[in-house]
Design a binder for these strands. Structure first.
Lengths: 229, 229
DNA sequence: GGTTAGGAGACTGTATACAACACATGACAT
DNA sequence: ATGTCATGTGTTGTATACAGTCTCCTAACC
C-alpha cells in the first residue's frame, strides 16, 4: 500500500524496511503481541518477503520482536515490570557513558551535544512533542558517541530506542523536565567532571523512572501494560 | 562442503547457520577483515544464500560483522583499543548483573551457578581448555540470567561472546585464575551481599583486563591486533 | 607514459517459486 | 457425545532466478 520512498544515496531497501518497521513498533502502530505476517508486511511496504524477513531477524536481536521458529514473529510484549527493569540497565550504561564522555571530551563532541540541545530546545518551545522524544533519544545517544567507545554506542542504540518505546507505551512524556536535566548533564561533561557527569546521568535516568512509575500506576493495571490487540 | 547437521527438534536451518558463522568468527577460522561472500559461505555450509544473508544481518547487529550496503560484509576488525574499551562496558554491565543477582537470588539460580562452576572445575582439571573458555562465558551469562532482568540478559549475550572473541584473538587464556574468582563471586551472590557481589564482579573484569593488556603487549604491535588476511 | 573509456566478471539486492509444516475444520467411528 | 483422522488453507523456510552495481582489467587515446 504505502510504498517506501527510499533515501537519495541508494540506501538499501532493507535498511528502509527495518527503519519503518521499527518506527511502526515504537509508535504503537504495530501493537504489542501483534503477529507479523511476512506476506502482509511485504505487501503493505511494497516489497517482497525477503527484505522483510531480514528486518524481522534484526529487530528480534534488538529485542523488539519475538520469533518462534515455525510459528512466526510477533511484536515483543513489554510488561510493566520489564519496562521498569530497563531503567536499571540504563543507569549503569548511561552512567558509564557520561563518565567517559566527560573524560574524553573534545571540542567536537561538546559542539555536537550542544547542537542537539539547541534543536531540542527549539522543538520544546514550538511544542513539537514527537520531535522532542526523538531528540531526547538523540541526545542520550550523542553522549554515548562522545564516550568514544564503539561497543558502547552499538549497545546503546537499541537500548535507547527501547527506552523510547517504554515511554510511548505508557504515554509518559516529560519533555521540558528532560531538557533542563540534559543541559545540566551537558555542563558537567563539558567541564570534564567525571563524577558529576555520572551522577547527573544516573539521577536523570532515576527521574525518568519515577515518571514512568507514576504514569504506569495511573494508566495501567498492576502487572501488565496495555496490550491492545 | 561440510554440511550442517541440523539439531533434532527442527531448529530452523538459519539458526544453525548463525551459530556456525559466529563460531567460525570467534574461533578465528574466519579472520578479522575477511570478506564474507554469500555464495561461498552458502556453498561451504550446504545451504542457499538466503539463510546466510539473514545470519549476516544478525551478526552485524551483534557487532561481529560489518556490512557496507553495496559492497558486502566483512568480519569486523577489532583494534587493541576497542578490545580494551570492551572491559569498561563489561565492568558497568556485569557489576550491575552481580548486584541484581545477589539481590534477587533464589535457590534455583544459586543451583544453576553452582552447576556451571562444577562443570568448569571439571574441565579445568581435565585440561580441556576450549571448554573452559565456553564455560567461563556461560558462567558470566548465568549471573546475568540470575539478575532476573530480561533486557540485561539480551544485552549480555552478545557482549560476552565478544569478550570471548577478544581473548581468543590475543591468545590470553587464564582459565584457573578465573575459576577461583568465579567461585568467590558466586559466594557473594549466594550470600545475598549486593555490594560485595558487585565489587567482586568489577574486580574480576578488571583482572581480566590486566591479563588482556599484558598479552596484547607481548603478542602485538602497539596499535593493532593481528589482522591476518 | 599516463589517463580515461569500455566491457567482462563477480557479487549483492530483490523478487518469485516451491516445499514443509501448523492449525482449523469437519467427517467418521466408537 | 466425544475422540480421532483426513483434508484444506495459511504461513514460514528455503531455493532459484534475475537485475543492478561495483571492481578490475584491457585497450585506445591524448
Amino acid at each position: 500500500m504505502s510504498d517506501l520512498t527510499l533515501g537519495a544515496a541508494h540506501r538499501s531497501l532493507r535498511d528502509e524496511v527495518t527503519k519503518e518497521l521499527r518506527r511502526r513498533i515504537l509508535s504503537g502502530e504495530l501493537a504489542q503481541g501483534e503477529r507479523l505476517v511476512e506476506d502482509r508486511l511485504a505487501a503493505s511496504l511494497g516489497v517482497s518477503r525477503n527484505p522483510v524477513r531480514e528486518s524481522i531477524r534484526v529487530l528480534a536481536t534488538e529485542g523488539f520482536v519475538e520469533v518462534v521458529p515455525r510459528l512466526g514473529a510477533t511484536v515483543a510484549r513489554l510488561s510493566a515490570e520489564e519496562g521498569e527493569e530497563l531503567f536499571d540497565v540504563r543507569m549503569a550504561v548511561e552512567g558509564l557513558a557520561a563518565r567517559l564522555a566527560a573524560r574524553k571530551r573534545t571540542p567536537q563532541s561538546a559542539e555536537r551535544l550542544r547542537h542537539v540541545l539547541d534543536q531540542a530546545k527549539e522543538a520544546v518551545e514550538n511544542g513539537r512533542l514527537e520531535d522532542v522524544a526523538d531528540l531526547n533519544t538523540t541526545f542520550h545517544l550523542a553522549v554515548g558517541e562522545a564516550a568514544g567507545n564503539s561497543y558502547l554506542s552499538l549497545m546503546m542504540t537499541p537500548m535507547l530506542q527501547r527506552a523510547q518505546w517504554v515511554f510511548s507505551q505508557t504515554a509518559a512524556a516529560r519533555g521540558p523536565h528532560s531538557w533542563t536535566e540534559h543541559l545540566s548533564l551537558y555542563e558537567a561533561i563539558a567541564a570534564g567532571d567525571e563524577d558529576e557527569a555520572e551522577a547527573r546521568a544516573v539521577a536523570h535516568v532515576a527521574a525518568a523512572r519515577r515518571s514512568f512509575l507514576a504514569a504506569a500506576r495511573t494508566t495501567n493495571h498492576p502487572n501488565d501494560m496495555k496490550t491492545v490487540r
